[in-house]
């Protein structure tokens, strides 16, 4: 490979990093929980986020909707004007998909837990 032209494109970074990014990124239903305040991050948590030296900007500038850390306030503000962010906002307008919906679609009723149902 690459013996003729002399142009060899080298992979930047390791595959491990991209895989970790994929597994650690939060899913839409988790982000929904974050926004509603039940999850790990609160909606306006830019002020009281814990300081983490491993994260960009010490983990102080976080976009809840996109689950991303930014280095400064300005970069975060710029990010909020991007198409990606707006598209994410649009995606989050829908109710998150869940296993219960999959089961309802298969023609199942909600689970019977005994105590609540008096049939």
């Amino acid at each position: 490979m690459g013996s003729g032209t002399g142009r060899v494109t080298k992979r930047k970074g390791s595959n491990k990093r991209s895989r970790r990014k994929r597994t650690l990124s939060r899913a839409l239903d988790q982000i929904h929980e974050d926004i509603s305040g039940k999850g790990q991050f609160s909606k306006n948590g830019t002020t009281d986020l814990p300081v983490d030296f491993d994260l960009p900007g010490l983990g102080q500038f976080y976009c809840v909707e996109c689950a991303r850390y930014f280095i400064t306030d300005g970069v975060l503000a710029a990010h909020k004007k991007t198409k990606k962010h707006k598209f994410r906002l649009k995606e989050l307008k829908d109710k998150p998909y869940c296993q219960a919906e999959a089961e309802a679609a298969a023609g199942m009723a909600p689970p019977d837990n005994g105590s609540t149902s008096a049939r």
């Binding site: 679609a105 023609g107 837990n113």
Partner: peptide, 15 residues
Amino acid sequence: LAIDTSFAFERRRNR
């Protein structure tokens, strides 16, 4: 067909 009484039978029974 999404909403129907015939869908009330199959369910997870946790008792």
